[in-house]
Nucleic acid binder design. Structure first.
Lengths: 324, 324
DNA sequence: TACATTGAAAAAAACGTTTAACTAGCCTCT
DNA sequence: AGAGGCTAGTTAAACGTTTTTTTCAATGTA
């Protein structure tokens, strides 16, 4: 790999001048500038990132900390993040914490050690890992907002409302809720958006909380079987919805004929299960892209106040809800 | 962040000595060694990776270059790679080329610039991108072997054979082949493993080649509808199988009642479609893990000959094949 | 006693950049 | 003509490590 020194030697000029040219500093003549640029191109010069990092304290790499890549929610996000980052010349360093707080913590330590300039983080619990504090770099939360952090996510309230509106349209008023974990803001808002949209007209027959990974607790399974009076089951996300549908099918309850189900997220699975899932689509790619842009702003400069960027969601109607 | 200098000052010893302690060099007294270690722990010292990188020319980071994270085949692989890498103290830098050769090339340039110590690569085409040559770091291919490269992948031949054996068991002898692209070794071996297992007893009624992304060409669709005499369709991977099943369903051909279908890979989707897919499971996590281990060996030392590590596969029987 | 050998530690150089401080030459202004 | 200011450069220091070389004292040997 050619170094700045090689360039300097080749052009017959000092390394400082070469550096100045490469960084677009003004104090260098047009002729020399040209020569340096030409030589750089000719030798295929690429700055040594480690050396730059050492001098400037910036690595032009960012961390992406996710709970679980095999959860079909994340790949699209990761892809969007990587691609926009790369377009900005940023390298993405991946941490998959496997849903564990220790993995998350270890990952952040590793990122800190490598001196990433910022991190995009989808937190797994509700605590703030110690390494994040000492990291002292901008952080943008993704999908899961928290007070005091910059975040980009979907308008969960709106999603809940759209679902409520659609439920009424399709003639459903007796609702069963398979909500996500109550300690996740995103789960709470999905639920509240739905429940508070038409409190008079929608009747919540029952509610059970399960994890976003979709595994059904004993309570959830029992409730589903009893099923009480609900004609529509509103799940906290697609994973939950899909598991519920499968569980019901095993017990000879057909969706949507016997009971309707909605999801949330429009993960890839929603399109391929049967019945295909009526759900709320988030603009995942846009979220990933925006998160990188936001992070880059923060990395570049001034301390921007920590607000959340919220994206509209849309209802995608498929076959898991019956008009009654 | 505490530096080696801080440690030196605190203990009252030179930086060289601190470095020697930290690197386990022998030429330092037991007393001093203890004191340095204690101080390091106390100050929470972490080596500055960029500085180390500059001096040693190693970054303790590796690249992971994938064609498409949203292809459900890759997340598990990526997760396994990240986790084992992290356990070895290696940071994983992700490149998602979106299936394009330019993205792949750009990504490799970015990785080279950051000086990753090696890369795990699932190549998208059959050419070798220029940046890979100049990178001059160990490379381990994953899932898609090529002559002259170290690689870790499944025993595709075996998968094809298992499928052939199972087909006969279930009474199928007239086969339709929806093979993967012929320029991919892995696709060829899947196909050949099947076709050559029982050439006398299995009769290939038709064969069409499609991409591993599963989108059905016009020819594939036409052939599926005519369907000729085949009772079993052997798809090159799960994506193809699932698309075929959906396409057939749209045209009122029921799987497995009217025709049976097998996949390959056992991606997450295979479990949730209906009918659930009978397919070949690859040990994805093991492959990812092994790839990292192999890479690390190569990064550490001697030029090991470039051979392929091959994992056994298993047949997972679900409901997409009917016994006739 | 003189001299080589060893062990423990320090000093200094090096990695590839950036940047602050400096300099030489030229121009402009009194 | 001399002071001051630009312009276009150069020199040198710095970033945090590792590593080579050097120093120094203690020990062993003849």
């Amino acid at each position: 790999m050619a170094t700045i020194k090689d360039l300097a030697a080749k052009v017959g000029v000092s390394v400082a001048t070469v550096s100045n040219v490469l960084n677009g500093k003004p104090n260098v003549g047009a002729a020399v500038r040209q020569k340096v640029l030409r030589a750089a191109k000719q030798l295929g010069y690429r700055p040594h990132r480690a050396a730059q990092a050492m001098r400037k304290g910036r690595t032009r790499a960012i961390g992406l900390v996710l709970p679980d890549l095999t959860n079909p929610f994340f790949p699209q996000l990761a892809q969007a993040v990587e691609n926009t980052a790369r377009n900005l010349g940023l390298l993405v360093c991946l941490i998959d914490s496997q849903g564990g707080a220790v993995g998350e913590s270890d990952g952040l330590i590793l990122l800190a050690q490598h001196g990433v300039d910022g991190v995009i983080w989808c937190p797994v619990g509700q605590h703030v890992p110690a390494p994040l504090r000492t990291l002292d770099r901008p952080v943008v939360l993704i999908d899961r907002p928290r007070p005091g952090f910059a975040a980009v996510h979907s308008n969960y309230l709106m999603g809940g409302q759209l679902l409520a509106q659609y439920a009424l349209q399709q003639g459903h008023t007796r609702i069963g809720l398979l909500s996500g974990p109550s300690d996740l803001e995103s789960a709470r808002q999905r639920r509240n958006g739905f429940v508070r949209a038409f409190p008079k007209r929608l009747d919540v027959a029952w509610e059970v909380r399960v994890g976003f990974d979709g595994v059904l607790t004993r309570e959830a399974r029992d409730t589903l079987l009893r099923r009480q009076r609900a004609t529509l089951i509103v799940a906290g996300n697609d994973l939950i919805a899909i598991n519920a549908i499968h569980f019901l099918a095993e017990h000879h309850v057909q969706v949507p004929d016997d009971v309707s189900v909605t999801g949330f997220d429009d993960i890839s699975w929603a399109r391929i299960v049967s019945p295909r899932l009526t759900t709320i689509a988030q603009p995942l790619a846009a979220i990933g892209t925006r998160a990188v842009e936001l992070l880059q702003e923060r990395m570049a400069g001034a301390a921007i106040p920590s607000r959340a960027t919220v994206f509209d969601v849309t209802l995608v109607e498929r076959e898991s809800v019956k008009n009654i």
